[in-house]
Amino acid sequence: MEDLRDELKNIGSRLDPAGKNESWDIPEGYFGEMQNMVLVQLHESKSNRPNVNLRNLRSGLYAVSGIAAMLILAFGIWFFAERSHSIDPAGIQELDQDQVYAYLEENIDEISLDMLMTDKQMESEILFDQPQSEEDWDVLLEDVDLHDLNNIF
């Protein structure tokens, strides 16, 4: 109090610290009502607040993270599989020439030309041209069985 008086005197103020009563009135019974209001709001906010257990929250986070990681992995596998399939559908790029020849030799009876060539290649293939000489005809008919020809006609 003395400090304040001295301070005001130093400032040169004539404000009298003794006359500090407020110029307003507080409504009668206000503080009792205010206390009740505060406590009601406090209880409401406590009962409305979700009960968050950090342990549960952590395990939930782990589960979500795991699912997310699995989804990312699955997507990654699918994406790269699609990509490699579109570039080299049969994986032929990975085979060397010797392997291809070995495969063809082993399965020559089961492989037809249309499995190895496109339609355009087939059309332009010399084997389907008209034979030019008797020798060509002989080569073509070398393995033909007369019995088969009778069945055709």
Binding site: E22, W24, I26, P27, Y30, F31, M34, Q35, M37, V38, Q41, L42, S45
Partner: peptide, 28 residues
Amino acid sequence: YQLPLYRHIRRMVQSHEDADDVLQNTFL
């Protein structure tokens, strides 16, 4: 604390209703 806080707040906001709002929020 209600009386000194009310007076302090009321000097800032002037109306009783505003002081009541601020005082309740303060205690909460």
